[in-house]
């Protein structure tokens, strides 16, 4: 695999209320084109930045811990490879399993920042406590159905990318936001009927709920899991409207 001389600019800084207020540190290292950004961050930790804070767990787009902003766009660090950065192909979902045919002695630069609209635990690590509180409000603890007709774990990995990309969340931190609302809908559709639908509807149908959305669909563009929270939001709205009109759910489908 080709080697790349990679310059990484990292927004660092102690715990604070938002990503703003840190300072950029620049590191240069030789990185294998097949490395993910998690490998890059681990290499920095092993070298010039031993106390570097970042979140990771599954390394395959399933746990939702590693989302950050890569050159200003929300990405999963585990799916973003050095080769992909060097080839300027950050629009692709994953850089793994691809040969970008980089020239010898390729160089690249990348800027890493924590997610927007989240408090920061330090460096690149966003504090998900408030976000998780919103998941709690919509009872996002879904139970996968049993037996032959298993429905899958919801595809939303609660990575927060949509929350960071959403301009409404940025201006109203109490706004429930795309993922919690999409999970509220998913809960309403759950065939196992786990959790309280009344609570989900109440959470969605309030001033910081589903009506705040301005349909910018930045959430859907940012989602690394193909959830399409923007569309889910619209469907949730339609449900609430039908309810206000006194239509029975399911009757029109």
């Amino acid at each position: 695999m080709a080697e790349v001389e990679l310059t990484v600019r990292v927004l660092r800084g102690p715990a604070r209320a938002s990503a703003a207020g840190g300072r950029y540190e620049t590191y240069t290292l030789r990185a294998d084109a097949g490395w993910s950004l998690l490998d890059v961050l681990e290499a920095l930790q092993a070298g010039p930045a031993p106390d570097l804070m970042y979140r990771h767990s599954c390394h395959h787009a399933s746990c939702g811990t590693c989302a950050l902003r890569v050159d200003g766009r929300e990405r999963l660090a585990c799916l973003t490879t050095v080769g992909q950065i060097a080839a300027g192909r950050l629009g692709e979902r994953t850089g793994h399993g691809k040969d970008y045919r980089l020239p010898r002695g390729a160089r690249a630069a990348v800027t890493l920042e924590p997610l927007r609209s989240f408090p920061v635990l330090g460096d690149l690590a966003a504090d998900f406590a408030e976000f998780f509180g919103k998941l709690d409000a919509v009872e996002a603890d879904l139970v996968a159905a049993r037996g032959e007709e298993a429905t899958h774990f919801e595809h939303c990995i609660t990575c927060g990318a949509c929350m960071s990309a959403c301009p409404i969340v940025a201006s109203d931190l109490e706004y429930l936001g795309p993922a919690p609302l999409a999970l509220a809908l998913r809960g309403l559709q759950d065939p196992t009927k786990t959790g309280s639908d009344a609570r989900r509807l109440a959470a969605a149908d309030q001033p910081h709920g589903v009506w705040r959305c301005h349909h910018v669909f930045e959430c859907t563009a940012a989602c690394p899991a193909g959830v399409d929270p923007g569309q889910a939001l619209m469907e949730l709205r339609a449900r609430l409207v039908r309810r206000r009109l006194g239509w029975r759910e399911g009757a029109r489908r």
């Binding site: 804070m53 979140r55 990771h56 767990s57 599954c58 390394h59 395959h60 399933s62 746990c63 811990t65 690590a125």
Partner: peptide, 14 residues
Amino acid sequence: RGEPASGTTGRNHA
């Protein structure tokens, strides 16, 4: 030392 389950557990075969 890091995020919970940032060692072997998070990356196992599930």
